[in-house]
Amino acid sequence: MNAKNNSCPMQNENAEILLSYCARTLEPEQVIQVEKHLLGCAECREWAAGQQAVWAAMDTWEPEPISADFDAALFARIAATEQPSAWERWTAPVRQFLQGGFGWRPMLSAGAVALTLVIALSIENPFRKEPPVGQSVKLEAHEIEQAERALEDLEMLRQLEAPEEETSL
């Protein structure tokens, strides 16, 4: 009911009542009131007749019969979804083990101990192999030589740059 364009206030403001009248869901007192109105309002009479015709046409649309195996198929689907998945089946022993008396608290304690050991070993590792003494002396001498060469190179560069600065001034 695009009631806004209609002139009758019944269709504009009380369209819901008119629709309920056609659906036969009104209280008897309201039915009497609507029927009184319809007697004097051709516009609403026309509207109601059209709506009742639609209603009657829709009543003729009967649904199809439902398959006899509908319930059986549904319960089979429910049973299939209730089955554990492959992942759940594979992890079931672990989950059972965890649930069966071996809780999370002992696991956390064991994890903390393991972490402490790893940190302690990385700081003070008794198994770490130190390089031989002679090899470390050789390494130190090589590093000093490299540093001296670098200083010499810097000095040479400074000397090369010096005349240019003088000319520019």
């Binding site: 695009n2 369209a15 015709a53 639609v54 009657a56 829709m58």
Partner: peptide
């Protein structure tokens, strides 16, 4: 919902009302 229903019934009346007259 009301607005939607009224629009739908308006369409249906325009197309089906002739059927039971």
């Amino acid at each position: 919902v009301k607005s939607s229903l009224f629009r739908a019934y308006e369409t249906l009346r325009a197309k089906l009302a002739h059927m039971n007259r």
